[in-house]
Amino acid sequence: KTEWPELVGKSVEEAKKVILQDKPEAQIIVLPVGTIVTMEYRIDRVRLFVDKLDNIAQVPRVG
């Protein structure tokens, strides 16, 4: 699995749990929505963009 659209609106902790069940090797990085990030693709990275309430604001994707 490479993306988790069902996690939008969920808490960071809930999202981490689901992603690590699907992809145990994932390196999860939590960032505020709108953060500028590098464009290199990494198969072991999932970025979680969160709103001010620490809920997932964008679809988490591998990369």
Rank of each mutant, 00 (worst) to 15 (best):
D54V: 05
V46P: 02
Q21H: 14
L53K: 14
K10I: 07
D54H: 07
I36A: 15
L53G: 12
P24F: 00
R45F: 15
V62Y: 10
K10G: 05
D54A: 11
Y41K: 14
I43R: 13
T38D: 15
I43H: 13
D51Y: 01
I29A: 09
E3N: 07
G9F: 02
L53P: 04
K16Q: 06
S11C: 07
S11N: 15
V12Y: 04
I56D: 00
V8R: 03
F49H: 04
V50D: 01
V12D: 03
E3Y: 06
G34Y: 04
V18I: 13
V30A: 05
I19A: 01
K1M: 07
I36C: 13
Q27A: 10
K23R: 13
R42G: 13
G63M: 12
G34F: 03
P24W: 04
K17F: 08
D44K: 06
K23N: 13
S11F: 08
V18L: 10
I56A: 00
I28E: 01
F49Y: 13
V33G: 03
V30T: 09
R47Y: 11
T35D: 10
L20S: 11
I36R: 14
I56N: 00
G63H: 10
R42L: 11
K1W: 05
I43K: 13
K1N: 07
E14S: 08
D22E: 12
V37R: 13
R45T: 15
R42I: 12
Q27V: 09
T2K: 13
L7N: 01
Q21N: 09
D44A: 07
V18W: 06
L7D: 00
E25D: 14
T35S: 13
V62M: 13
V18C: 09
E3R: 06
T2H: 09
E13C: 07
G63D: 14
Q21G: 12
R47S: 14
K23I: 12
V37I: 11
T35Y: 04
Q58H: 10
K23L: 15
P32G: 04
P24E: 04
E3T: 08
L48S: 03
L53Y: 13
K16N: 05
V18H: 09
D22H: 06
E13N: 11
